[in-house]
């Protein structure tokens, strides 16, 4: 029997890894992949709490919300990658530090 906390700990570790990737890596594609990792960690947490709630009966609301998260992540990835392609065409790089034209 696996404790419900174990799933939540895996979710927390994956979220931390994704956050670390967003903060540390300078490649826009890697940062995007880290964001996807964080969204997946959130999904795992939703599903773990839906199956093992702190009080009350297991509910399918967690599945519904995870479904919406997947849909939003798909939309976010398509638009974000389009932005990456456009930036690469105009500047020849996808490094985040090179994109400073919104400063001042």
């Amino acid at each position: 029997m696996i404790l419900p906390s174990a799933y939540l700990v895996v979710g927390a570790l994956l979220f931390g890894l994704g956050l670390c990737g967003v903060l540390v890596r300078r490649n826009a594609l890697t940062a995007f992949m880290s964001v996807e990792l964080m969204l997946n960690a959130a999904n795992l947490t939703f599903l773990a709490f839906a199956r093992h709630p702190l009080r009350g009966a297991p509910s399918l609301d967690g599945s519904a919300i995870a479904f919406f998260v997947i849909a939003v992540a798909a939309a976010e990835a398509s638009v974000g990658l389009a932005v990456v392609i456009a930036v690469f065409r105009s500047r020849g790089t996808v490094e985040i530090d090179a994109l400073r034209s919104l400063r001042h």
Partner: peptide
């Protein structure tokens, strides 16, 4: 700094989750 911050957040969440008690639930 990034690694320490992320690690700190993950550790905080882990201690929080490990201290929670879940009643047995039958779906």
């Amino acid at each position: 700094a990034g690694a320490l911050g992320a690690l700190g957040l993950a550790g905080l969440l882990c201690t929080l989750f490990l201290s929670a008690s879940f009643p047995p639930a039958v779906p």
